[in-house]
Design a protein around this nucleic acid. Structure first.
Lengths: 237, 237
DNA sequence: ACAAAAGTGTTGTACGTACACCCATGA
DNA sequence: TCATGGGTGTACGTACAACACTTTTGT
């Protein structure tokens, strides 16, 4: 009871057998042909080696000794999928003993990317899946995605992360569609408009989206307002 | 851009130089003699080795290869301070390259403990500090405590974690005092009573706290209600 | 009796929800 | 002109803040 922490190597520490990986759950919205509302989708990488060869897994890789965790998440995501997210935040550290044959601690991030930033030609071994209907993934990655979805749905209620899924200018209907897709329920257009207008986070522009019926005013996000309050850790992305 | 993640050892991974530590920010409420409201306090451990020998640091230790992260947090907290918290939750993984002379990833937990569970005789090299007036701590531990305090204050607003700082039976004034101490502002007794009564999380008992003026009814928490909604990760503590 | 905390009642405001209604455009 | 989504108005219910008031104890 009196042993003190030393933060220096000791015989019983896990340095030689435990490795640190970084993975990212990155969401976008996808308009499935013919469907009225877009659905939440994410890219997965087919594993080319054991363990779980052939199964789909979250994009990620090993932490490099010379990079921070955020940087590792960005790098491994880019290397595996070619994507560079508009929003990136740490999700959770997963470290159950039996989650992999060898001991692996996974620092998992979650991210958002705008549909227009997703390349049309898919990268080798990468495929996009609807979050609602995933296959059995490698390791504990199903559990991880579930948790990331829960965080996404929670956070959309009290922050402005929806921005991360939209282009710079958008109509209120487009913004509402993002919320409806994530929350999986319809929102009253009139009330949605007032809520978001009174929040002070939107700036109306002079431009309109035309093409169908009455033109809709385009809005921009107020850059002065942070996407999400992350407390003392700040908003570094 | 087409390199795929393998989650198997490679030449450039950090296994041989990066180590994983687990630390815990554990809060309690302390009634400083004469003060009207209690203050948030936490135990720190004096470092007995380099780096940062002599400075105060969060209780913690190295992750053992055979234990999960939650278990490691409980174990290292117990070994360094003798404490066993009533609430324990993962806070964040800190992994800046320069946060320690050697590369250390710290999985940090935060916890609550009831004042009556804090032993009177302090353990060797352990001392309790007011969260509001900490010295300069070892590593990035000041930053970590700030973040934990931010999470505590946030979470007290939308969950019932205040329970983790109270005995089984308590008066509404005592519960209100917990909130006031954490949020650092006074709450209207009348409105507080109604809010908490209507939340359905409290069960009135037949017992009363006597001793000063009109006796106050004692309440218990409804065990059916989770302390905090933690989503798919569940409440395992 | 009086101070002080426990507990109740009342009122105003803010905000979310439901829904009726008008407006402007493409076809 | 009509269907449709853009946009406004309004009424209702809940929730919270402020604060006056009553109740019950210790001294």
């Amino acid at each position: 009871m009196t042993r003190t922490s030393t933060l220096t190597p000791t015989a019983d520490n896990a340095a030689d057998t435990t490795r640190v990986a970084v993975s990212t759950v990155i969401f976008t919205l996808r308009r499935t042909s013919g469907a009225e509302t877009p659905t939440v989708a994410l890219p997965l990488v087919r594993r080319t080696r054991d363990p779980h060869e052939g199964q789909w897994a979250l994009p990620g890789g090993w932490l490099d000794a010379s990079e921070g965790l955020d940087a590792a998440a960005s790098r491994t995501l880019g290397e595996t999928t070619g994507l560079a997210p508009s929003y990136l935040e740490q999700l959770y550290a997963f470290g159950a003993v039996d989650r992999s044959p060898t001991r692996v601690i996974s620092i998992v991030y979650w991210a958002l990317i705008r549909p227009d930033e997703v390349p049309d030609e898919s990268v080798e071994n990468v495929q996009w899946f609807d979050a609602a209907s995933l296959p059995r993934l490698a390791f504990d990655h199903n559990e991880i995605v579930d948790y990331a979805l829960w965080r996404l749905r929670n956070k959309v209620g009290y922050s402005r992360i929806a921005h991360g899924l939209l282009a710079d200018e958008f109509t209120l209907a487009e913004l509402r569609e993002v919320y409806e897709s994530i929350l999986q329920r319809r929102l009253d257009p009139a009330n949605f408009r007032r809520q978001v207008e009174n929040s002070g986070t939107l700036i109306p522009t002079d431009r309109f989206r035309t093409g169908s019926h009455r033109p809709a005013r385009l809005y921009r996000y107020n850059q002065d307002v942070e996407l999400a309050d992350r407390g003392p850790l700040g908003g570094r992305h």
